[in-house]
Structures are given as C-alpha cells and as structure tokens.
Design a protein around this nucleic acid. Structure first.
Lengths: 200, 200
DNA sequence: TTCCGATCTTCACCTATGTGAATGAACCCG
DNA sequence: CGGGTTCATTCACATAGGTGAAGATCGGAA
C-alpha cells in the first residue's frame, strides 16, 4: 500500500497524469485533515460559513437547499472519491446557502480556505488540477440543468438511473426525487409506470 | 484610451487586481481574434465541435439546448463583458451539445483551444484567472438549479428580473421563458398576474 | 423479539403549467 | 409605404406532477 494507492492520489492522477511526483502529492496530502462522521451528521449548515472542502474516502453525503416550505432539495450526492462543499460559502466566506449531511458513516479529508488558497498559489500544478475539477463539475451541472428544463421527469429519472446506478442503490428515494425536481410520490409513480413498461 | 480601458482588461482586473501588468495583458490579448457578427448568426452548432471561447465586446448572444421536440432551451445569455462557449465541446473536443446564436449584432474576441491551454500552461496567473472565472460560474449555476427545483415559476421570474434587469430589456421573452424552464404563454400569464399585484 | 420512526407506495383529488389556436403589435426588408 | 415574419398576448381546455392521507415495509434501538 504505497502513496500512489491513495484514493486522493488516483483522483489527482486522473487529471495530472504521472507528472505528479510522490513528494508533491505528499505535500498536497499533508494539508488535509482526516475525520470520520456517523450518518446524519451535518458537515455544514445553511446560514453558517462553510469552512472546508471535503473529499470523501468512504460512505456518502449529500448537499441540499432548503426552501421556505422547509423542503430539502438535493444539489449533489457524494460517494467515495467525490469532492463536496458549499462553493458559494467556501469561496466567498459568506453564510452558507446549503446544508451538507452524511447519508452513511463517512471517512473524509478536509481542507480549509487558507490551505486551499496557498496550495493553489504555491503550485501551478495544483491550481491547474482544481481548474479542471471545477470545469468538469460545471460542464456536468450545465447538462443537468438543460435536461431539467427540457425533459420530462420520467426521462430525467431514466437517464439518472443509467448514469449513476450506485446512487440509486445507496441514496434514499426522496432525495433522488428532490434532485430530479419532483416529489417522492411522483418518483414512486414513475417507477411503477416504468416497471410496467419493462415487463409488459 | 489605454490598454487598461479595454473591456477585457477590466474583466481580468476584477479577479487579478492590479498585479496584471500591461505587457502580460498584451500577451493575453494577442492570442484573441476579433470578429463581428450580424444578429441571428450561429457561433457554434449542436453536433459540431465548438472551437472557441468567446468574449463579448458588444451586442448579445445566447447558448441553448434543443430537445427532441425541437424546442430551444436557453442555457446562458451573454452581453458585453460576458464569456460564452459550449464548455463540454470546447474542452472535450467532442460534438457540441448546445448552439450559440447572436441575438444582436456582436463584436467579440475569440480564442481557440490550443491558445487557451498554452496561456494556462505558460502563466500561473492566467490559469488562476480562469479557475476563478469558472468557479464563479459554477456557483451561480448551482444556485440557479437549486431555485429551479425548489421554487415556482413566478418567483423564479421575479428573482431573474431583479437580478438581470438588462436581460429583461434586451432578450426576447420566449428565450427568457425557456431559461426559466417554462413556455412563453406561461411567462406571459405570470407577467399579467404580477402587473395585477403591483397595481391592485 | 418488539416497537418506533423513517421511508416507500398507492389512491383520489387538485393546481400550476402546457397546448393549440386566434389575434394583434412590432419590425424588418422590399 | 405594405406585406410577411416574428413575437407577445389571451383563452379554453388538457395533463404532468403536487397534495394529503392511509397503509405497508423495513431497519435499528431497547
């Protein structure tokens, strides 16, 4: 089990290739703090500043927006190997818009704003990594929004289930429903209709 | 009229501050190609690779997704001082998902992928700029998606009109409707209801 | 094992938004 | 000018998805 087997190393390697030296990665890793949480813990809460970016090593978490009716609307799901934070709050320092909650017991690595910005300032390579990371996230989010506005709930669910089968297994359906912009009862109805279509 | 009055300089300055020297900016500017378009020109088209990132100097443009029914769904509007591209296609080199069309006659600057990537590789400062740029775009997009899923059409329109009054002036309503995820007739109805509320 | 809270399903009914068509206003471009 | 195209508005009606309530299921805590 070397440094290069680290889940975080593999994550960086996917963008930086093998130009990432072990000592450099070691420096990168050293500014992250490891921590574990039970399920149903809040990593950050709407209204409070979100002080960390989290990298999930095991377990799962979810960020969500709560509207005036108190309904949770999932923004992002994170399994092992995923990054998650309240970008708005983390980068602006302002009170958070979203809440991040663990869905399963979680092991993670966290980095605060100062360390994040010094990593980026001290190393062009790390800044490049985070540029690509957020660029990919942006691309995926834009596609999701296009589909949300252009397609019906049923086809959004079908595409979601096909693209993220692991989420369907591990994330409660009422959160998946909110991620798709519908109510749990509607998702239930859609799944019933679909099972009828698959076994006619 | 010096270099520092350039709309693009001001755009960079907002992120980089005055650490951006004139010679550095000059080098940045030199890899952009200026071009003008009439209204209703396609800068890039669904199915073709999007070869450029565009920076609008004057006029307006819109990127949109076309679903199977042939309906246009606005992704982004761009006025002077805005950046626009098909991120997916530009960065992956794959056939585009979106179409970008000018809404008014446009003057713009365009940069291709090779020049974009060499700028980022040759200068930590420029890579930093684009990291922040996309990070801000991501943050705004995430908020928009949260609102799309959590709020009704009327309040989405009210917030949109308040946040982007210039868009309401210059962008056709059927595109604003599609941006909000509704039909033009529904936006028309919403505006009628709102005018009733404002003048009771 | 039993109980309790959390989640999922189903149903009957409701409403926000979609649909299709008709009309009129605005605006190019000849 | 003038006629065609594009866009906004309105209306009557249709429907996808929401609502509220009632059970059904299931897993964890005692």
């Amino acid at each position: 089990m070397t440094l290069k087997d680290h889940l975080l190393y593999k994550n960086l390697e996917r963008v930086l290739g093998d130009s990432l030296s072990e000592p450099e990665f070691s420096r990168f890793l050293s500014v992250f703090v490891p921590k574990s949480f039970d399920r149903k813990c809040l990593l950050t809460e709407e209204g409070s500043t979100c002080r960390y970016v989290y990298f999930i090593l095991s377990g799962s978490a979810c960020s969500y927006y709560v509207n005036e009716e108190g309904e949770k609307h999932a923004i992002q799901f994170a399994l092992e190997g995923y990054w998650i934070t309240d970008h708005y709050s983390f980068f602006s320092g302002r009170p958070g818009l979203y809440t991040i909650e663990t869905l399963e017991p979680v092991d993670l690595l966290m980095i605060n704003r100062d360390n994040f910005e010094s990593l980026c300032q001290s190393s062009h390579q790390f800044e490049h990594f985070f540029r690509i990371l957020i660029q990919n996230a942006f691309t995926a989010l834009q596609y999701r929004l296009a589909k949300t506005n252009a397609e019906e709930a049923e086809s959004r669910y079908v595409e979601f289930a096909k693209s993220y089968p692991a989420f369907v297994q591990r994330i409660p359906q009422y959160l998946i429903a909110s991620y798709l912009g519908i109510k749990p009862q509607s998702l239930s109805r859609i799944r019933k209709d679909l099972s009828g279509k698959n076994h006619p």
